[in-house]
Write a protein that binds this DNA or RNA. Structure first.
Lengths: 169, 169
DNA sequence: CTAAAATTTCACTAATTATTGAAAATAAAT
DNA sequence: ATTTATTTTCAATAATTAGTGAAATTTTAG
């Protein structure tokens, strides 16, 4: 294997491992990183070959990545097979992940919390008030984080990061 | 079961499920949420009882939570058993998680990326330059995120959030 | 010291999650 | 319309991760 391929493989493996720590399945993270460092769009068969995985696995995770918007299929002139390429702009990648995680995960979580708070507020004991207070604080934090993520993910990096760094000292 | 207990149980279950989506094991998330809404510190036996889990499981996850700094053991006068209580301040919780994830996960990830970049920079082909550029961008983002998290997690909520919201419009 | 209580460890098992691969479905070409 | 290429699905299986419980260790009290 060439040094170039070896570097790419190392990156793909490590990125896959990092993914699992953050609740992303290993194959999905590996396909994503493979496409991130690939010069050209790849077919399902090429992904299968590169990562030594089955067609079903490749297909499922390619579709999942596409549903997140992290990769897209492109048509290659004179070819019937689908080709996939990754969004390579790191800031855009981050914005996509932030928005999707918010939509799929933290917004539903906030709904659950909100519901718990409402139920707790109906009760009048001291312990219920304490519970209600704690859950309210947690929910306020989740909603704050959601709102900040939304705003951050809607801005240009160049318009945000310098100001942010200045603010943070 | 009382309405109060039912609310708590609902919260514990849902928080556990959310945890898994973010790479935290279910039991750990459940113990954390149980202690978050508990009026008093709890012993291992009480945690076992409440969540219907084994001693080994309870012990392991209590220690893990303590190693993160999300819970601490407290001594209760006249009692030999260890009691545990959660850090209940949500902002502090967030700071702890941010710092620990940085230390345990994103800093090592950045080291890996840095290493890949160095190796790629030694190569002189067009493709190696492309790879090097892409990995460098990724690493710069990871380091930026690390540095921002660090700064955010070292500030008082009251001193940061209002300014941040103003900046974001 | 030593006996009881409490905690920790870890080999085994259970539960969950990921992956395969072949069949079914769909799409494209002739 | 039929054949061939391609994609999708999904039941079966593999791999991974989490959890158990009893034995070993450590701590505390007398």
């Amino acid at each position: 294997m060439s040094e170039l391929e070896s570097i790419k493989q190392n990156f793909v493996t490590q990125w896959g491992a990092l993914g699992s720590q953050w609740g992303v399945n290993r194959t999905m993270a590996m396909i994503h990183s493979l496409l991130l460092v690939s010069t050209d769009p790849l077919t399902t068969d090429q992904v299968m070959e590169e990562l030594a995985i089955s067609r079903g696995n490749a297909n499922t995770n390619l579709r999942e990545l596409a549903s997140w918007g992290l990769i897209r299929s492109v048509v290659v002139r004179g070819q019937r097979k689908d080709f996939y390429e990754a969004e390579k702009d790191v800031w855009k990648m981050f914005c996509i992940v932030a928005r999707e995680r918010k939509r799929r995960e933290t917004e539903p979580a906030s709904k659950v919390l909100q519901n718990c708070v409402e139920r707790a507020q109906r009760l009048k004991t001291k312990e219920a008030k304490e519970l209600s207070k704690q859950l309210k604080e947690l929910n306020e934090f989740v909603e704050l984080a959601n709102s900040i993520m939304d705003k951050v993910a809607s801005k240009e990096k160049s318009a945000l990061v310098p100001k942010l760094l200045k603010l943070l000292g």
